[in-house]
Each structure stands twice: as structure tokens, then as C-alpha cells.
Design a protein around this nucleic acid. Structure first.
Lengths: 228, 228
DNA sequence: GCAATTCGGTAACATATGTTACAATAAATA
DNA sequence: TATTTATTGTAACATATGTTACCGAATTGC
């Protein structure tokens, strides 16, 4: 394994608290391999059996749920050092509930289930990290359900901007997605998202310059989140 | 622990493959306790810290996501011997994403996180069962998202009936929920659900006698699932 | 068996979001 | 720079679902 790859792996939450030399030792005594894909390649299809854990060494992928008629929701986007679908590996029906698509040219590490089990047995930290990761995913999905089902498009926007603003520590936030990607993430139609944004501009709550959004009236934004 | 309680625990998926005497031994060397609640009592609130695993010894509970303005979606209903929110116990932010409500008079077993960790360490089967359960929950939630977001009310009904029909091995299926519960489960308004059912009756696809639904035209039902 | 409560169907109406199509930018590429 | 391609805003319209309110049927408890 190259130094670069090892670095990416060591920054994966599954290996947190385990030092590089130990990781190297653990991996070297087990089966694993790497693979590369180009942008937009489908890495795994929804419904595929999932029996090798995927860890992103380089690039970005998104996990999407697709409908027969072409619509989709992006469940999450994963970046370098993230692990894909940790939970599914141990589920009774280990078929992927999402389609995994490369968002850029990527390089991935594949760990057969046996290897993962071995890592769990050999290293307690890894085990706890693994259970932690699965638990986090459950909470993430539950939150996603709340967001998808309960909030109007305006609420989704408000919520997203407030949390970005908190994270970036400013009232001018930079979106990391295009409006189209944002619409997919919210599970709404792009023109609908656009319309809601326009309402914000009209009401003097927001101002936009490309991907930079200025929050002019944070109070109203909060009111919208809690239901006006 | 009473024989009855032990029986309920032994039927919990977390203890599958572990025999009763072993379960008893595992539990007796650890901290645990039981508690009773009446119907409609809120066992845990969304947002509560979750650091004791709950296993249902008797009765039913439902896990619900609530909105500030009183609306709710029932995420799942759990019955005797089911474990509640296994994943959350090990998540970084171990606050419950759902509110847990007693659907009948219930009795629950509470295992402090330490006890659960101890069980994981002492018994490999328990550990694998635990990871299996978390994984299943993730797939369940992902499926829930697809259902909530992608299908129309008619599709939800059709989907539900077809799967019930398969399970019950008959074209006349018995619903285990009231229409109102079903509406909550689907995350839709009750009158809207009612309207959709009526459309099915009008089109000669279904016929209802209370909670018994006769499927008259399975082909059309399947067509509706796949988008007409 | 009766009163009280819950449950289920219906109708008229309100509303949020989806759909489609087009034009205007902005970004990428040759 | 010119040309193409992707991204975004907008408008008119279609539609699914929510909301409210009412009534009758079913169920429950006394």
C-alpha cells in the first residue's frame, strides 16, 4: 500500500485512534485491493450484493436512491477517507439500498467482509469505530426522513443555510453544491427550489452572488425553520 | 429474571443462536432492570440521551418522528422481543432520533450501555447479531426513504398490499393496522389515504370488508407499483 | 343495551410542489 | 476568442396531497 493510500485510510473514521503502523500491520495480514474509476461511473448499483467494504482513497462519490422513472434523491456525498455503507455489510439482506456514483475520478480500497470481521476481532478500537459509524448512519437517515417529509422547501433552504452559517462562522455562506445538486439533495425539483430562493430574495431575507449567499435577516430565517 | 422474561429475551434477535442458560448467565453477571408502562405512555422522547438499550418483554411500542406542529410519522412498530434503537447506543451523538410510545401496556428490559458492551465482548454471537441488527435498520430506513419520497399514496397502498398478500399467501389480506395508523405509517393524511382506497374500489381493483382487503385485480396493482 | 368515543368515508377547497419549456448567464472547451 | 455545454431563473400550468368539517358506522366501556 502506498504512503498516500495509507494516509487516506488512517484518516478514515473506522481507523480513528489506531496509528498508521498498526493499520499497516492489520491490513498486510489480510486480503484487500484497490480500484480506480472515472467520473460518473457507477461503482455499485442499488440492489447489488455488498460484501466488500469500500473506502474512498481519493475523490468523491454520492449515494443515490433512484426511481424506475429516473428521478433520484442524493442521500449523501462521501469524500476521501469515508467508508461506504458500513452497515449493509452485516445486514441480513446485504443488498445495497443505494446506487453509488463517482462524482470525480476516484480510487477506492476494497476490504472483503472476511477482512473486516478479522479487523473487528483483532482490534477493539476498530470494532467500536465500526459500531459508531453504523449508529451515526442510522441517526443520519432518521434525520433525513424528518427533513424530507416534514419541511417545506423554504424550511429546507433555511435549515441548510443556518447550519452552513454556523459551520462557516459567517452570515455570508458559500454553498458547496450547485442549485441542481442541492435540489437532488433535498429531493425536490430544481425549478421549485429556484422559486423558493426567489421568494427569499423578494422578502429581503437573502441575497445571492453565485454560490455565495448573504443572509440579511437571520431572525426571519429562524422563524421559517420553526414554522413561521 | 422470571422465566417469562427470559423467554422474551431469548426470542430477541440480538440473542439468536445463544441458548437460554447462556443468556441467563450473561445477564446475571451484568447490570439490568425492568420497567412497566401503560398504554400511550411516552417511553423516551426524541432528543433524549439513549444510553440504556431497551428490549420489549411484553406489548408493543412505536417509534415516531414528530414535528413541532403535531404531525408525525410512525417509523416502525416494535413488538415483544424486539430491541429499540440498537444503533443509537453506539452513535457519536447518542440522542434518540425518534419518540418511543407505548402502543399497549408494556414491560421493558433495560441494559446499560456498559452491559451491552460487555455482552459484545463476552459473546461473539451477540456481537454479530448486534451488527446485523444495526445493518438491518439502516436498510430499513433507506427503504423507508424511498417509500416516503418516491411513491404516491396509491403506490404505497399497492406495495403494502402486495407484500402482505405474499406474506399471508392469499389474495384476501388482513391489515394489522387501522386506516389511521396506516396513514401515519405512510406519512400521509388520513382523508388522502381514504380517497386513494376509494379509487381502488371504484376501479374494481380492491374490495374491503373492514380490515380484510380482497385483491380483485393483482395485475393492475402491480402496474400501479411500477408506475402504471 | 345505551352512551360515549373512536374510526372511517366524503366533499369542497387550499396549497405546495412538480412539469415543461424557454431564455439568459456562466462555465467549459476547442 | 468563439462555440458549445451546463447551469439557473422564470412563467404558466397540471396535479397530488393536505385541510377542515361533517356524518354515519363501528367499537368500547358502563
Amino acid at each position: 500500500m502506498t504512503d498516500n493510500d495509507l494516509k487516506a485510510v488512517s484518516e478514515c473514521s473506522l481507523f480513528s485512534g489506531i496509528d498508521k503502523s498498526e493499520i499497516n500491520k492489520l491490513l498486510e495480514s489480510n486480503r484487500y485491493y484497490t480500484k480506480n474509476y472515472h467520473r460518473d461511473a457507477v461503482i455499485r448499483f442499488q440492489g447489488d450484493e455488498y460484501n466488500e467494504l469500500i473506502i474512498l482513497l481519493e475523490g468523491e462519490v454520492s449515494a443515490e436512491i433512484h426511481n424506475p422513472d429516473g428521478k433520484k434523491i442524493t442521500i449523501e456525498t462521501l469524500k476521501k477517507s469515508d467508508a461506504v455503507a458500513t452497515g449493509v455489510l452485516f445486514a441480513s439482506d446485504n443488498t445495497l439500498p443505494v446506487t453509488v456514483v463517482a462524482g470525480s475520478d476516484i480510487s477506492i480500497l476494497l476490504l472483503p467482509k472476511k477482512t473486516v470481521i478479522n479487523l473487528c476481532q483483532k482490534n477493539e478500537k476498530f470494532l467500536l469505530n465500526y459500531m459508531n459509524d453504523s449508529g451515526n448512519k442510522i441517526i443520519f437517515l432518521a434525520e433525513k426522513i424528518r427533513l424530507l417529509k416534514f419541511s417545506s422547501i423554504s424550511q429546507k433552504i433555511a435549515c441548510h443555510l443556518v447550519s452552513l452559517s454556523k459551520k462557516q462562522g459567517s452570515d455570508s455562506v458559500k454553498l458547496s453544491y450547485s442549485r441542481e445538486q442541492l435540489a437532488d439533495l433535498f429531493g425536490v425539483a430544481r425549478p421549485s427550489l429556484s422559486r423558493s430562493f426567489s421568494e427569499f430574495y423578494d422578502r429581503g431575507i437573502l441575497e445571492a452572488e453565485g454560490k455565495i449567499i448573504h443572509i440579511l435577516d437571520k431572525e426571519q430565517l429562524m422563524d421559517i425553520i420553526t414554522g413561521e
